[in-house]
Simulated assay, not measured.
Amino acid sequence: MNRRFLPVAVATTVSTALLLTGCSSGGGDDDASDKIKGAGGDKDASASASAPSQPDGSKRPEIKLPKSFQVQFDGWTSSDPKLQAVMDDGGQQLLSSYAAIIASDPEAQPMAFYNTGEALFTGKKWISGFVDKDLTLVGKTRAYKPQARISQDGSGTLFYCVDESKASTQNRKTKKVTKTPADKAQALYRTKLAKSKGIWQTTSSTTTQGGCQ
């Protein structure tokens, strides 16, 4: 399992930056602003993030991000409502990961809501890497070029890119900021999802560093 890289080199050194997401092709215009709440495109969105309301009435948890860290979703729209649902919950899964890091809480409720199985186990371990180093996130990331698919067996796949060139880790005590190295700022994400009670939960996630360049 190739779970997302630790915050840029938390895995290899005491600090560096974050490195999170993944890429694909298709799924929308790079310049189109996404409607996922909490993404941080406007001045209010970064403070609070509630998942979009769903036709099935499923209640999504609120995800809050501070103004010091924003996530911009570009092109996260689809004319197919089924694929849009995959992208919506996949986007919320990404936000839940960021929020858990900032809250220093691997057990944050949205993590368990949008992840299951291997993805939940490895996600908690990944977030614990930030907690152990006493790191939080600052700056801005951009998630773009999403591509969602639903297989004949009913499972979902979501590919997308994340650019973290404007994001950094910050030590909570010393306030030292470490920028994401340019050669590690983009990654290709491949996630698998399964639908449970109207929610598309991520079951596994792999990344390819530099896969979106």
Rank of each mutant, 00 (worst) to 15 (best):
N2Y: 11
N2V: 13
R3A: 08
R3E: 12
R4T: 14
R4V: 14
L6M: 13
V8E: 14
V10E: 13
A11Q: 15
T12G: 10
T13Q: 12
V14N: 14
A17Q: 11
A17C: 11
L20C: 04
T21P: 11
T21C: 12
G22M: 10
G22A: 09
G22T: 08
C23F: 02
C23W: 02
C23V: 05
S25R: 03
G26K: 11
G26V: 10
G26L: 11
G26E: 09
G26D: 05
G27Q: 03
D29K: 06
D30E: 12
A32Q: 10
A32P: 04
A32H: 07
A32E: 07
S33W: 14
S33N: 12
S33G: 08
I36G: 07
K37V: 07
A39L: 09
A39P: 08
A39K: 08
G40T: 00
G41A: 11
D42Y: 09
D42H: 08
D42W: 07
K43F: 12
D44S: 11
A47K: 13
S48R: 10
A49T: 07
A51C: 13
Q54R: 13
Q54F: 13
P55L: 07
P55M: 02
G57F: 03
S58T: 14
S58Q: 05
S58W: 02
K59H: 09
R60E: 14
E62P: 01
E62K: 08
I63D: 05
K64R: 06
F69V: 01
Q70L: 03
Q70M: 08
V71Y: 03
Q72D: 11
F73M: 06
G75M: 04
W76Q: 01
W76P: 00
S78E: 05
S78H: 04
P81F: 00
K82V: 05
L83W: 01
A85R: 05
A85K: 07
A85D: 08
G90L: 07
G91P: 00
Q92R: 09
Q92P: 01
L94Q: 10
L95P: 06
L95M: 14
S96Q: 03
S96P: 04
S97Q: 12
S97K: 06
I101R: 02
I101N: 01
I101E: 02
I101A: 04
I102V: 09
I102C: 03
S104M: 04
S104P: 01
S104W: 00
D105I: 03
D105N: 15
P110Y: 05
M111E: 05
M111H: 06
A112H: 09
A112E: 14
F113Q: 01
Y114M: 01
Y114K: 02
N115C: 11
T116M: 04
G117E: 10
E118W: 05
A119T: 02
A119K: 02
F121A: 15
F121T: 15
F121V: 15
G123E: 03
